Each structure stands twice: as C-alpha cells, then as structure tokens.
Amino acid sequence: MLYFGNNLVAKQKDFRTMASGYISTNIVQIWCQIMSVLDMRRSIDQPKRVFFSEVVFMTLEKATNLQKSKSVASRAIFNNLCRALDHQLESISLDISDASLVFFSILRHQHFYLMCFNFMTSRLQVIDNRPTPERIKAKNKYEECPEKLLVAFTKYLTLKKNPLAKKMKSMKVEYMKMPWQNEENAVDFHEAYADLYRHVNSRLYTFLTSLRAKYAATILMSPMNTLLPKVTKATKEIYKQSK
C-alpha cells in the first residue's frame, strides 16, 4: 500500500496504471479529493471548484423518475446518493454552499467523462472527449444521465437547505463541443490521448506522460497520505541503492 487517507487506498498496482492506458478508479477517487482540497488555496478572485468522484453517480445507475417516484427502491437510491455525497464532503470538511463549479466524474461503459454544474452560467455542462456521432442525439447518447443527476442533486441540495438549491431551478443541460474531441481515443480523457498522440505528436505524448508522473507524485507526496513517511523513507533507500 502506497496511499491511505480519508478511507481512500491506492496500492502499487493502482499507481502502475498511471504509466499508460486506463487509470485505476482508486487513483481517480483520490485525485478528485486532492483537487477539492487544493482548490481551498485558490486566490480570492478565482471561482470555487468542487470535485466528486464517479462513486456518486454510480448510485443513480438504476434510478428511474426520481423526481416523482416515491417507491422504496427510489428512496433507497436517493439515500445512497446522499450518503455518497455526504461522505466525500465530510471526509475533507468541505462546504459547497458557495461553490461556482461542481464537477462529477462519470464512468460508464468503461469511459470517463465529466458533468459540471456551472453556477455562473446556470448550465449543467457535459464534457466529453468523444463527440456525439452523426445522426445520434446527445440526449440518447448519454441515456438521460445529465437529467438524472440534475434531479438528484437538486433534491440533495434542497434536503440540505443549501443556498445553491434555488440556483438549480434555472439550470439547463449543455453538451459541450471542443475542437480536441475525437472518436479514436480509447483511453479515459482524464489523462488524454496517449495512444493517439504516440503516432501523431511525440512531443505531446511526452508531455502527457510527464503529467501522469506529476499527478502520481502529487498523490504520493500529499499531506493527506498517512503513509507519506513510509513512502519518503523507501524513496531515499531506493535512491541510495541507485548511486
């Protein structure tokens, strides 16, 4: 085990996935938490950002008509969502009442993308490196997942009497179009296009690989890592042996 903090764990096998290809969900969960903590140090003129891992949306996979349904199954799904949100917020003592951007990492069909509640523009923005294929509506591609999250998160904020709940009334779904979207990427876009750029742009591939190394080091050396002394000691030993 190389990382343990706030009940999140990453082993050597998880960090090995940072080399290339698909990244371990354990790493993604830890990175979301670290990003939220790092944002606490933002400058006063910067918007407040909050990052939730894919665990939250996974609770909604089987949800249907959460807005009106009062069935036992619907209540259980919503309760699981609340527990997942509460856990991620309470683990780092985070208040989201003044957040400007709330990101949800989504993992479906072995593919990561993001949904962001942008309270500055009143839009729930779907950010995906893969474009919507021609002749297919975005709403069909995402199987109404944005609508599910919009309803569920609104209910959660209302239950918690969070000031953001009022802003949810004007929130509309927006499918973002970016010039770097492509169909060829088979790797989660959180870490981008390693396989594609290996052939197209060796400099960019090197840059992306160095980013992964930077992220791995940031996770390992985070103050949130209770195993940091152990990791530091082991690193020094390895360095001595290499000389």
Rank of each mutant, 00 (worst) to 15 (best):
F4P: 00
G21A: 05
G21W: 09
S24Y: 06
V28E: 13
Q29H: 12
I34D: 02
M35D: 05
D39L: 03
K48E: 11
R49H: 05
F57H: 11
M58E: 15
L60I: 05
L60R: 10
E61D: 12
Q67W: 08
K68W: 14
S74A: 13
N79A: 07
S91P: 07
I96Q: 07
I96E: 06
D98R: 13
D98H: 09
A99S: 15
S100A: 14
L101A: 03
F103D: 01
S105E: 13
F112P: 04
L114P: 00
N118P: 06
M120F: 08
L124H: 01
V126R: 06
P131L: 00
P133T: 08
E134P: 09
I136A: 06
K141D: 06
C145K: 04
K148D: 07
F153V: 04
Y156P: 00
L157Y: 01
T158D: 11
P163R: 10
A165F: 02
K166W: 05
M171L: 08
V173D: 02
E174P: 04
E174V: 01
M178F: 15
W180V: 04
E184N: 10
A192K: 03
Y193E: 15
D195Y: 08
H199E: 12
V200K: 15
N201W: 10
S202G: 11
Y205E: 01
L211Q: 13
R212D: 09
A216V: 11
M221R: 15
P223S: 11
N225A: 08
K233Y: 12
E237F: 10
E237H: 12
K240E: 13
